[in-house]
Design a protein around this nucleic acid. Structure first.
Length: 424
RNA sequence: GUGGGUGUAGCUCAGUCGGCAGAGCACCGGGUUGUGGCCCCGGCGGUCGAGGGUUCAAAUCCCUUCACUCACCCCA
């Protein structure tokens, strides 16, 4: 048997109702906030990601699905969406029409990581990006959208962590400060942290090894090292969040894994997810558009990990089961043929109907109707055909009506529309 | 890339010391001439993850490998 590729998964009918629901909620919310959908390809030139995400990140170094196509070009399945969105913003010169754009995109991303709970090699993200606005109101607004989305899904145990990574003016100074801080504690650090110290000292805050955590206890905070402009920006963001009554925690160790972030970064965490607890993350990336060859326009946005969202919403799938309103139990060749026609007529009248094409026993058909959760069973066989009637049975109340064949479809439509089942 | 756990029917899992491959659920049929859920009886259903080895004999012991899963790493 051919099996699905490692780290990939099928989303089965039992779950797709929930996925559709989540997507509908987020689309409506984003459109209300002035976002427009952008659909971007799954495949890009490898260089786009190397330049935007950062050549020395894990994603680019060892997680991308990269291959050479027949023309010799190096192509990569997108590991994230922001780079593509920025590319499209630049390529189609959207900034020339209006510098301010609010865009969202929904779809799969690909990273070749070891699969784990809440982590797949093809995973789904909802991305929202704002271009052309550098006011802290914009940061706060983006976070408001994210937290409102969580709220509308009924997810209350989400904590928001925020931080500021500074800008090209203040960050280099801070990196040096961190390096000199750990210089005297090298023997406490794990081998990974020793490597990070040289390559990307901000990562030292991320380590979960107890000894490293302890060593970093009194490390300098980037928030003390921000330049005046960044400090003011961060203060404003916090002020607006408080105005929205969005609770937040400041985590000066919150370091995003992608190089392009500046100033505000944030993460939405769900403790119940365990170790893979980041359900959404984002921040400001004021230098990215220019770095990719566009105008000097700021950006801010977030990505929601839909797979992890689904973990949080697990158990609600049955709310979206599609149960038929009417099950047609037809016995005998003639009844099967007539029932087959009714089946289609009912569907055209928006009544969900099912039947069994095999001429099975009534007991078997009743059992199946019950299993599918049908509200009504329409019973028809030789006896009914001779009488010119069929029996419509309510599966809950067990009440039965004899319905003349001529009026049958209309009768069934009326009956199912007036019942509570028809309007659910 | 590193480490732990698990692979037996569609699903959940038993399988003792190496001795005929099992149960429940689900599905199909019957008990009940044509009225669901409960009950009873019967039936269908297997490359015991795969390959090799030891043995008269392997689901069971040994080796290899693959997959799933959890954690590290990293990220959403």
């Amino acid at each position: 048997m051919i099996k699905l590729v490692r780290g990939f998964k099928d989303i089965l009918p039992a779950d797709t109702g929930l996925w559709q629901y989540v997507e509908a909620i987020v689309r409506e919310l984003l459109e209300d906030f002035g976002f427009s959908e952008l659909r971007i390809p799954l495949l890009e030139q490898t260089e786009l990601f190397a330049r935007s995400i950062g050549g020395d990140t894990d994603i680019v170094e060892k997680e991308m699905y990269t291959f050479t196509d027949r023309g010799g070009a190096s192509l990569t399945l997108r590991p994230e969406a922001t780079a593509s969105v920025v590319r499209a913003y630049i390529e189609h010169r959207l900034y020339a029409k209006d510098p301010v754009w609010k865009l969202y995109t929904i779809g799969p991303m690909f990273r070749r990581e070891r699969p784990q709970k809440g982590r797949y090699r093809q995973f789904y993200q909802i991305n929202a990006e704002v271009f052309g606005l550098n006011h802290p109101k914009s940061d706060a607004e983006v976070i408001l959208v994210l937290m409102t989305f969580m709220d509308r899904l009924g997810l209350s145990d989400i904590t928001l962590q925020i931080n500021s990574l500074g800008c090209p003016v203040c960050r280099p100074h801070f990196k040096i400060a961190v390096q000199s801080f750990v210089a005297s504690r090298s023997e406490q650090l794990c081998s990974d942290c020793l490597r990070r110290r040289d390559e990307n000292p901000l990562r030292l805050f991320d380590c979960k090894v107890p000894a490293c955590k302890e060593a970093m206890q009194d490390a300098p905070s980037i928030l003390d090292d921000l330049c005046g402009a960044c400090q003011a920006h961060f203060a404003e963001v916090k002020k607006y969040l408080e105005g929205f009554e969005i609770p937040y925690q400041i985590n000066h160790g919150l370091v995003r894994g992608l190089d392009y972030y500046t100033r505000t970064t944030f993460e939405a965490l769900a403790e119940s997810l365990g170790t893979q607890n980041a359900v959404a993350g984002g921040g400001r990336y004021d230098g990215l558009v220019k770095a990719l060859g566009g105008p000097d326009q700021p950006g801010v946005g977030f990505a929601i990990g839909v797979d992890r969202l689904m973990e949080l919403l697990a158990g609600r799938s049955q709310d979206f089961d599609k149960t038929p309103h009417v099950y047609i139990a037809a016995m005998g060749e003639r009844a099967q043929d007539i029932g087959f026609q009714w089946l289609q007529d009912l569907r055209f009248q928006k009544v969900r109907a099912e039947m069994d094409f095999e001429n099975r026993s009534l007991k078997s058909q009743m059992r199946r109707a019950d299993k599918l959760g049908a509200a009504y069973v329409l019973i028809v066989g030789d006896r009914e055909l001779e009488e010119g009637t069929a029996v419509l049975r309510n599966m809950t109340t067990k009440e039965q009506d004899k319905v003349p064949l001529q009026d049958l479809v209309r009768f069934v439509v009326d009956r199912t529309n007036t019942s509570s089942v028809g309007s659910r």
